[in-house]
Simulated scan of single mutants.
Amino acid sequence: MEFFVFISEQWVLVSVLLILIYLFAINERIKSGRPLSVHAVTRMINADEALLLDIRDSKEFKAGHIAGAVNIPQTKLSDKLAELDEHREKFIIIADKVGQNAGAAGRRLRQNGFKVFRLTGGMMEWQSQQLPVVKS
């Protein structure tokens, strides 16, 4: 009961706190790369503006991936950043399974000077939109 009394008496402070939490969350999301829809990703890849980096493990990648994607599993990304140096002039679009792990990889790439975006919903969203995948 005291909690609700505090909120009603200190509504300005509570509002400021909620706004700050919201701004912090947005800032952290942007640091890992802005999310892109499957349609925006398709357009960028077709225009040769971006490289698609698939950070799923090799087994999942071989089971089905987006044509032209480069596979560097997230666990090996730090060790293999040099492989991406030739693509610094392009945007790097990160794809993972469902979009949950792309944030950490995006932050790591941005810290190393890459321009990063994330595929919203990952490969699950790509496949749910019935877009083509390549099996190897």
Rank of each mutant, 00 (worst) to 15 (best):
I19A: 15
I45C: 04
Y22H: 13
T120M: 13
Q10D: 07
S15G: 15
D96Q: 05
L131T: 05
E9F: 07
A63W: 02
E125H: 12
Q10T: 10
V116Y: 03
I30T: 06
I26E: 15
Q127E: 14
N112C: 08
K97D: 13
K115G: 03
V133G: 06
G64A: 02
L109N: 12
L77E: 12
A102C: 12
G122A: 09
I7W: 04
N101G: 08
A82Q: 11
I93K: 08
Y22N: 13
F24E: 13
V134Y: 01
A40F: 05
I92C: 05
D79F: 05
F117V: 02
V38S: 13
Q111L: 12
T120W: 08
Q10P: 00
D79N: 13
L20F: 13
S128G: 00
G121H: 10
H65A: 00
N112V: 06
M44T: 01
K97V: 03
M44R: 13
S128R: 14
I93R: 06
R56Y: 04
H87Y: 15
N101M: 09
L20N: 13
S136P: 07
F3N: 05
F24G: 14
I55C: 09
F61V: 00
A69W: 03
K76R: 12
A50G: 01
V38W: 03
L36C: 07
F4C: 04
Q129L: 00
R108D: 02
I30F: 09
L77H: 11
S32V: 03
L17V: 12
I21G: 03
D79E: 15
E2T: 10
M1E: 13
A25M: 02
S37H: 05
E60C: 02
V116G: 11
E86A: 14
E9T: 10
E49P: 03
M1P: 09
H65Q: 08
W126H: 10
G121P: 10
Q127N: 10
H87S: 12
V16F: 06
H65N: 10
N46W: 00
V16E: 08
A95N: 05
R34P: 01
S32W: 03
K62A: 03
Q111K: 15
R56S: 01
D85Y: 08
L53S: 09
W11L: 14
L51N: 03
F61D: 01
P35H: 00
S136M: 03
G64R: 06
E89N: 12
D54C: 02
N101T: 04
L13V: 10
S37M: 04
F61I: 01
T120L: 14
